[in-house]
């Protein structure tokens, strides 16, 4: 019966996808993309990937959509009709798709519990993680400990994106609050934002620190945290928000997150372990794992939150 939901969602995704291909209004496409993302997030929930769902919703339906809209607002909405017939692309796509479908023919069936993918490494993660790491959420333990190095890479990637956006769009600080006139009319928004700002932040921190037990972790928390500040900026103006968190502070925070992560790794090295070997961080290996995961998740959260803000401010402040 989950399969039914799964299939319907896939069907909806397909419709959305085709609509995106056909639609000419870029803003419309953007909204459809947001819906696409939302639908795939639901699909992830159906497929038991709750952490992924959380992230996809926060990213796809959230920040990515906003960035796309900002870009359209900074450029233009209408898509020109392509000049040449897209015959070659169609051919390439067909060939690629055909190849992939050909490849699926020897794949284990969808959901087959005996598939090699589930039997080997993953199986032992599920068995050993509670003992070795003591964290119920296996995704977190794999993410932060077994494959903690990937996550360091991930933080670096997002940091790179921030550096890129800073380089490309810069970060213009608003001296005077020029949107003041517009803001004054947003009574509803302002009051609601006032109520929600602390709630969102608290919720973000909750997600940050409960990644061990449920879906969540540094990345999701970072995005939510940033969302709080985005709401603040929406309600009270960019200038006010920028005064609350100055750009230099954001830079420092973005860097600090990566550095915290790396420092945990180096510290475990100094304590006689391998890079990112958390168990040496405390006397008890499990406690060490906990501490390590806590710290690196903190690093991830800090970097992600500040990077999201850097990117968002970068796009939004581009308007003269």
């Amino acid at each position: 019966m989950e399969n039914l939901i799964n299939d319907v969602l896939l069907g909806l995704l397909m419709i959305t996808g085709f609509a995106i291909v056909r639609m000419k209004s870029l803003l419309g496409v953007t909204m459809l993309t947001s819906i696409y993302s939302l639908l795939s997030a639901s699909l992830f929930v159906v497929l038991d990937a709750v952490d992924v769902a959380l992230t996809e919703a926060a990213i796809g339906a959230g920040i990515a959509t906003v960035l796309m809209v900002a870009t359209v607002a900074l450029t233009t909405d209408e898509e020109k009709v392509p000049r040449h017939t897209p015959l070659l692309p169609l051919l390439v796509v067909m060939a690629t798709g055909a190849a992939l479908i050909y490849g699926t023919l020897d794949m284990p069936h969808h959901g087959d519990p005996l598939a090699p993918a589930h039997r080997y490494v993953a199986d032992s993660y599920l068995h050993d993680s509670p003992v070795e790491i003591g964290v119920p959420n296996v995704v977190t333990s794999v993410l932060a400990s077994y494959r903690g190095y990937d996550t360091l890479g991930e933080v670096t990637v997002i940091f790179t994106a921030a550096a890129g956006v800073l380089a490309l769009l810069g970060y213009r600080t608003r001296g005077r609050n020029i949107e003041a006139a517009g803001i004054r009319k947003q009574v509803v928004l302002r009051v609601i934002a006032k109520l929600f700002f602390p709630l969102i932040l608290l919720f973000a921190l909750y997600v940050q620190f409960h990644g061990d037990y449920g879906p969540g972790g540094g990345f999701q928390a970072g995005v939510i945290f940033a969302t709080g500040f985005i709401l603040y900026a929406l309600a009270f103006g960019l200038g006010t928000a920028q005064r609350l968190i100055p750009s230099q502070l954001l830079r420092i925070l973005a860097a600090a997150g990566v550095l915290i992560y790396a420092a945990v790794g180096l510290e475990s090295m100094l304590l006689g372990g391998k890079f990112l070997e958390y168990r040496v961080l405390a006397d008890d290996p499990i406690a060490g794992q906990h501490l390590g995961i806590l710290l690196i998740e903190l690093g991830v959260g800090i970097t992600v939150a500040s990077v999201m803000l850097i990117i968002y401010y970068g796009f939004v402040s581009r308007r003269h």
């Binding site: 709750v50 959380l54 339906a61 920040i63 809209v69 607002a73 006139a181 947003q186 928004l189 929406l234």
Partner: peptide, 29 residues
């Protein structure tokens, strides 16, 4: 997993607002 739902609420709310504001900021005059 209600946490996810909660996050969705917040995210979709803020992103709706953001889309509107980013699309025509300072409008209102």
């Amino acid at each position: 997993f209600l946490d996810i739902a909660l996050v969705y609420v917040l995210i979709s709310f803020v992103s709706t607002l953001a889309v509107l504001r980013v699309h025509n900021p300072g409008a209102g005059t």
